[in-house]
Nucleic acid binder design. Structure first.
Length: 583
RNA sequence: CGGGGCGUAGCUCAGCUUGGUAGAGCGCGCGCUUUGGGAGCGUGAAGUCGCAGGUUCAAAUCCUGUCGCCCCGACCA
């Protein structure tokens, strides 16, 4: 029997919910697909579940094509595996923790690397068992500091996570490639635009890491791209900077510089008082020294100073990557108390007696610089004396950083590392992530197998995730108009929605008969059999977004219906027998 | 965690400045009419005004505290 709208558990809303901001969130709630249960946590109604199942179907298809087998882990897990991997701690407030009646600690899994690793360890012990790729589609839990945008960033979300297990790096490369290919097919089948970008490997080390980003203004990640290069800004590597010949640069000198609290005022002051012959000073001539507080995994803290050219902001995300696994925060007044060497507002690598910042220099504070601070570059920077700046402070001559890290923000127009020219910057939402974990989890959890020589070797792993409910939200975000949702055919909750438009019983009978025929022909059919005015039915059909709508009305007696393409808006009268071919 | 906004009927909101009978639209029930674009008329049910304390003869409204939600930022394998 086709589903009848009069019986379907759904209620459409005429107005946008007050707590929704992004389009997908508003429409999914208004059209009766989901309901909010708690911040970032949603209840799924029949329509929403149907779409979700259809997305999962496509993912399962492609996982099967890629030779991956489905398993299913609990969402509620004991803490021990996570203690072994260290993530019970490193996840911090990001996981939901709970305690059973005996006082034992549990967590709602944010992701399942440990469990997959232990399962394979449990069952397999020979190289002959490998390679293996297994996956699950399971709800994940993360206690996000701020859930937002409905399904796009929830605290409970469905994710397909796959893991590959190989004996050697070549095997890992091959398993990785299979999943990567599968991801491309999945996103293509779903009609979701994506870019593959190089990503940061995070805490777990490993070799390759690539993110599938969907370019969208509601995205949370920034990425850069050219025709041939794409990377998350976190993974962008600055290259192609040549050393500068500083042999004619005058010696560094300290000058008073009152009332220059910002880069802008400093540049103005420099041009007014230290004018140079060849050109004006610009922000790019100043060196900004940012004081950061590192919190190491053992909870110890340390202040470090990071230098970036004054015309760029320091990018904390990029810096975080460089200092991982330490956590990075900007230093606050409190933190400076223990560091009287630091003259806030006038911090610099050099003072009149020579290099000042750096592990082996008077301040004993580690000093790092962005690669743009090339040897020979000359800077206006703090002189470590209140109210004074130094000019012509030359990198490599007057100071040498303890190390170089990617610290400055990336700007549109920067050169791509592969030489393909200036990059553009865009916003994207992560929809998939493939990456080579390597042996991190296998090491800490002891996943080893015997190789051909009878020797124990540690297995190498890959991890491959796709956010299922996030994909659904993105599909809703991309496929709609002012009237409502417009689902792509392969994920729509129904193939066709039949609207019985007219009060005569014969119209409803004809609609039901047509529905029965279409269902027999293999279509998933929804019939609007309600005793409401046609306007209501049309409006609901539009917001629900089934791509093919068939109106059975005035000419039902002649077996004539109107076929309505929700996407194009095109409507035309056709004989009942022709409907199937149009769906 | 920092900044901003908001909690009044199932939903979207008004009322609060200036204290005095708790409202509208939509939705929901019933009756009649209507049936190709959220239809009409009549009638009805529905609210501890987030919570707690205080001021007052009297608090949705003023004061204090507290909880929650949304947005921006920080954060986000």
């Amino acid at each position: 029997m086709p589903d009848r709208l009069s019986q379907l558990f759904v209620r459409t809303l005429r107005e946008d919910p007050a707590d929704a901001e992004v389009r997908s969130h508003k429409l999914l709630v208004r059209a009766g697909y989901i309901r909010r249960a708690a911040p970032g946590i949603f209840t799924w109604l029949p329509l929403g579940l149907k779409v979700r199942r259809r997305i999962e179907k496509i993912i399962r298809d492609e996982m099967a094509n890629a030779g991956a087998q489905e398993v299913f882990f609990p969402a509620l897990l004991p803490k021990e595996p996570y203690e072994l991997s260290g993530r019970w701690k490193t996840y911090g407030d990001g996981i939901f923790r709970l305690t059973d009646r005996k006082g034992a600690d549990y967590l709602l899994a944010p992701t399942h690397e440990e469990m997959f690793t232990l399962l394979v360890k449990d069952l397999y012990s020979s190289y002959k068992d490998l390679p293996l790729t297994i996956y699950q589609i399971q709800d994940k839990y993360r206690d996000e500091a701020r859930p937002r945008a409905g399904l796009l960033r929830g605290r409970e979300f469905s994710m397909k996570d796959a893991y590959s297990f190989d004996i050697d790096d070549a095997g890992l490369d091959s398993s990785y490639q299979k999943q990567r290919d599968a991801y491309e097919r999945i996103f293509q089948r779903l009609g979701i635009e994506y870019v593959i970008v190089n990503a940061d490997n995070g805490l777990m080390g490993g070799a390759k890491s690539e993110e599938f980003l969907h370019p969208t203004p509601v995205g949370e990640d920034l990425f850069v791209r050219t025709d041939s290069y794409a990377a998350n800004v976190e993974a962008f590597v600055t290259t192609g900077l040549a050393e500068i010949d500083a042999s004619s640069t005058p010696a560094a000198a300290v000058h008073p510089s009152p009332n220059t609290p910002t880069i802008e005022t400093l540049v103005d002051f420099a041009n007014a008082n230290w004018a140079r012959d060849d050109r004006k000073w610009t922000a790019a001539d100043t060196l900004k020294n940012v004081v950061l507080k590192l919190t190491h995994p053992d909870e110890s803290t340390e202040l470090v100073v990071v230098a970036v050219p004054g015309d760029r902001e320091a990018d904390l995300k990029r810096i975080e990557v460089a200092f991982a696994p330490a956590e990075v925060a900007t230093a606050e007044a409190e933190d400076f108390k223990n560091y009287p060497e630091l003259t806030v507002g006038y911090i610099g690598p050099w003072s009149e007696s020579g290099q000042f910042l750096g592990e082996k220099h008077p301040a004993k504070i580690r000093y790092f610089a962005d690669p743009r601070v090339v040897n020979g570059s000359a800077w206006i920077t703090g002189a470590n004396v209140h109210g004074h700046h130094a000019i012509n402070v030359v990198a490599g001559r007057d100071f040498t950083p303890d190390g170089y890290i990617e610290a400055a923000e990336i700007l549109a127009g920067d050169q791509a590392p592969d030489g393909s020219g200036p990059v553009e910057i865009a916003r994207g939402m992560e929809i998939g992530h493939v990456f080579q974990l390597g042996r991190f989890f296998a090491d800490v959890l002891g996943l080893q197998v015997l190789d051909q020589n009878g020797k124990l070797v540690t297995v190498t792993m890959g991890s491959y995730g796709i956010g299922v409910t996030r994909l659904l939200a993105i599909l809703a975000e991309e496929n709609n108009d002012e009237k409502g949702l417009i689902w792509p055919k392969n994920v729509a909750p129904y193939d066709v929605q039949i609207v019985a438009a007219g009060k005569d019983d014969s119209i409803l009978d004809a609609a039901l008969a047509l529905a029965g025929d279409l269902e027999s022909a293999g279509f998933d059919v929804l019939v609007d059999d309600r005793a409401v005015s046609p306007g209501v039915k049309f409006a609901d059909a539009e917001i629900i977004g089934v791509p093919s709508i068939v109106i059975v009305g005035r000419r039902a007696g002649e077996q004539i219906a109107e076929f309505w393409n929700r996407g194009t808006g095109e409507r035309k009268e056709v004989h009942f027998s022709e409907v199937a071919a149009l769906i």
